[in-house]
Amino acid sequence: MEIRVQNVRKEFSRYPALHDVSLGIRSGELIALLGPSGSGKTTLLRLIAGLETPTAGQIFFGDEDASSKSVQERNVGFVFQAYALFRNMTILENISFGLKVRPRATRPPKAEIRRRALELLDLVQLGGLDKRYPQQLSGGQRQRVALARALAIEPGVLLLDEPFGALDAQVRKELRKWLREIHDRTGHTTVFVTHDQEEALELADRLVVMSQGAIEQVGTPDEVYDRPNSPFVFGFIGESSSLPVEIENNEVWSGGRAIGLPASDIAAGPAQLWFRPHDVELVEDGAALAGVVVASRRVGGTRRVELEIGGDRQRVEVDLPFDHPAGEKTRIAFRPRRWRLYPAKG
């Protein structure tokens, strides 16, 4: 089911959480709401679920305005960060809960409920554990039960709030892959919230990068990584270095010299240059950025050095080949292979 968020604003009593957010979610896609603390991503998720009501704006499920519907009526499958499993019920009872509380008219017969619950238990690979209680399961298992419980009501949309936040790294990796598989198999529209950009890049069809209550960019992982449209997105996704520069004559200048990078589409004046540490080429001579090594550390198969550039000692990081002979105080000249320029903020 497709979801449309239209000019939604949400204010809590002392604090505005979302400013004028609009978003279109396509039916069947797996989309991530990504951002740091306070970005409003969980608030947006809860607004879609109906656990909060917007101060202004509307949310549409398909063609219907969802604000007329209560949480119970929206038929959303919500998976909470802390699982929120009912401890007084067995796993099977937890999964069956959504079906058991349906009004008589739409409630399936008991045998049917049991069958469906067991089926879902198998789907999440926990078959045989139906009589256990949540306390007897590991974190990863509990999360899978939470998902099965949400799936049981055949939701129009699945909403997951930092689903893997409380798990350790290994389990997280496994569950990520597994979530993607489940999604591909069942085809539900799925929205999940995370602050882990690796997770978002790996899992999602599209990402919604948020910061301080607003959407910075919406796009596929490639779009967001390769063509970030704001300094925030550039800095948040992947690794980055940035440097204040001057734009003159459609060229980038730093420390009073042109550094060999063309700059069209941007007004003359102060700007911020952003690039990724591994996306640079070392240059012997010619127009380049030059700096002095002040620190160096090993990252994976390369050497990451911190350079001090120019009179005002700006610091950037670049990756050098692992066996590069640079030591402290060595002078390194380089040019980014790919970069973005953003006008400097006043």
Binding site: F12, T42, T43, G165, A166, H195
Partner: peptide, 15 residues
């Protein structure tokens, strides 16, 4: 039980 700080300003989801 750790919980994400992301919305600690907005609400404490455990109480």
């Amino acid at each position: 039980m750790p919980y994400d700080e992301s919305d600690v300003l907005v609400y404490d989801s455990r109480r």
